[in-house]
Design a protein around this nucleic acid. Sequence first.
RNA 1: CGGGGCAUAGCGCAGCCUGGUAGCGCACCUGUUUUGGGAACAGGGGGUCGCAGGUUCAAAUCCUGCUGCCCCGACCA
Length: 440
Amino acid sequence: MRLSRYFLPTLKETPREAEIVSHRLMLRAGMIRQEAAGIYSWLPLGKRVLDKICNIVREEQNRSGAIEVLMPTLQPAELWKESGRYDAYGQEMLRITDRHDRPMLYGPTNEEMITAIFKSGVRSYKDLPLNLYHIQWKVRDEVRPRFGTMRSREFLMKDAYSFDLDADAARRAYYRMFVAYLRTFARMGLTSVPMKADTGPIGGDLSHEFIILADTGESEVFCDKAMLDLPIPSEDTDFTGDLSDLVAPFTKPYAATDEMHDQAAFEAAVPEERRVSARGIEVGHIFYFGTKYSAPMGAVVTGPDGKDVPVEMGSYGIGPSRLVPAIIEASHDDDGIIWPASVAPFNVGIINMRAGDDACDAACTELEWQLQAQGIDVLYDDTDARGGAKFAQMDLIGLPKQIIVGPKGLKNGEVEVKDRKTGERTLMSPQAAINALTAS
RNA sequence: CGGGGCAUAGCGCAGCCUGGUAGCGCACCUGUUUUGGGAACAGGGGGUCGCAGGUUCAAAUCCUGCUGCCCCGACCA
């Protein structure tokens, strides 16, 4: 992509409304634009990151055996009256009326609809286990949206729903998602900590929030330092097997958000030097809720004994539109964003120090072409801005690697490869640069 | 939903107290000189001062009402 043909409205100054660093950087890097309180447009750079995140989420969901569907954002109120949540949900549910005066709503979540879908397609226990998920915009008319896309009124969520014959099978389904979540966040360069969460009226221990530690997090969290260094299950994990041994190391150590925190238990369980008390961002939430929706909505399967039983369900959420700022909170410096390679909007930035100079133009074009031929996403700054401005902008938008091409280097047949994170710069031939950047 | 604040060019702001018809920096356009960490000079374009009323010869400025947005708290992917 040529910068001269792209739409990248970056800002030197921070818009006044932005308080936290991720919101500021997303606005300055031209990733989003606010349309109303808690409602944002995603501009090209932001859209690329969001798509990369969704693809990682999708790959890990698929790997775990979940199947993708797509449900609408608009739902009939009727469905929610069946479950009893139409009245229970309150002001956060954005309700509208269609031209026939039928009450509708913008979906804040999809338990009801997925249960209806399940009901219409499944009769037998032989069709279980089943896990259906989608990635769709959700609407919650938040009392106080804030922090950019971290807490917005319209947000993208991956929500998966598992269906099983009994509680044991439901637990196995829960563990599959647990492992998928560990892998998903790790692939984005994040250290996530699963923390016991409130299970509400269902009880049990099958609810976890996945928390990223960050100073600007909304909740206070406590955990054993050992949790931060646990190895992540590999991509060869057999999701058809029993995953309890993989999950156990993550559920045994102490880890709790403030609402579940018990200081005495914390001190008893964790030696002082390993006690971490920090702030965190919730990027995922999984829970098992049994027959809470299947029973009132009549979602049953016929068991091996010929009797109908309501299915055991769980639901599993990840917020991609929240992960974007979460990753920035976890990975930035004074100059801007530092994208982990897996979610970077472009892998490599090329800076032409002397646009219009034949040798520089030719070298840049060749690099751009060669890298793109290898499947590398390249943003080539071919504008005639001064070098300093180009460096600053490239650092702001956080591309992991940069190639600096200028007359000084080219005199010796060299270009400079810069690592955004370390700031390290290395002179090498263009071919060596291509080799280095396509190696992994 | 309670408490506080803000609204003037795309962005950041000054002007308001003490009324006289709008200004600065960045960005943008033209030209020249430049070019290795947010260039310099010269010229230029862009604003129903959030909206609606009112006071006044005259309102960005004073008064009233409304709307939008931000922050702090209680609630949440």
